[in-house]
Simulated scan of single mutants.
Amino acid sequence: MVSNDCTDESMPVLTARGVCRVLRDAIFGRREMVRLSAQTWGELYAGLFMVKIEGWSITIFNDCDELDYCEGCISPDGRRWSFDSGDRFGTDPIALLSVWEHQTLENQLKEL
């Protein structure tokens, strides 16, 4: 029997917690984060800002120069996570960060 399902059931699902771990690794300097967006954080001021963290492509929403939420993520192996406004509170990787981690990440994004 041939399956038309494009998902690989043997691959674990990419979760908000998994994306949050990658963000924490960047915050603590365990992984390098580079800007993919053409504009800097300050030049963009409001809109989607893209970064790469060692193969992970992460899109973050800049809300008037403040770190708001994670729009989406693509892992190096092709798994995807995306923000769904129907998700419960706390399912956004940014919402899972501590206040200190959130502020540190925002400062790092401003420096890219």
Rank of each mutant, 00 (worst) to 15 (best):
G72A: 08
M1E: 11
M1Q: 10
A16N: 06
A26R: 04
Q108Y: 10
K52Y: 15
C73W: 00
A16R: 02
G86S: 15
F28E: 10
K52C: 04
S82N: 02
G55K: 03
G78T: 05
I53F: 05
N107G: 09
W56V: 01
V22Y: 03
E71F: 01
R17I: 06
I74W: 05
W56K: 02
E101H: 14
S98I: 03
D5W: 13
L112P: 00
L96A: 04
E54M: 11
H102Y: 14
G90S: 06
S10V: 08
N62D: 03
I58L: 02
E66T: 15
D63Q: 12
K52D: 13
S3R: 09
T7D: 12
A26E: 03
R17D: 08
D63I: 05
P93K: 01
T40M: 07
F49R: 00
I53K: 07
A16I: 12
D5F: 05
D92P: 00
V2W: 03
R79D: 06
P12A: 08
M11V: 02
D84W: 07
N62S: 10
N4W: 06
G55Y: 11
V34Y: 04
W81Q: 00
V19P: 01
C64S: 12
A95K: 06
R24H: 15
N62T: 12
S10W: 11
D65P: 02
D5H: 08
C64I: 14
E43G: 03
G55W: 06
W81S: 00
I74L: 11
F61Q: 07
D5L: 06
V34A: 09
F49P: 00
D25H: 03
H102K: 10
L44V: 08
L48C: 06
M11F: 12
R30A: 09
M50Y: 07
V22D: 02
E71R: 00
L14S: 03
R24E: 15
M33N: 00
H102D: 14
C73E: 01
E106K: 08
T91P: 11
R31I: 08
M50F: 13
S85N: 11
I74N: 05
L14P: 00
E66N: 05
G55H: 05
A16H: 06
L48H: 15
D77W: 15
W56T: 01
V99Y: 04
R30P: 10
W81I: 00
L36W: 09
S85M: 13
N4D: 09
I27E: 02
P93E: 08
F89D: 10
I53G: 04
L109D: 01
L48E: 13
P93Y: 09
T7F: 14
D25K: 15
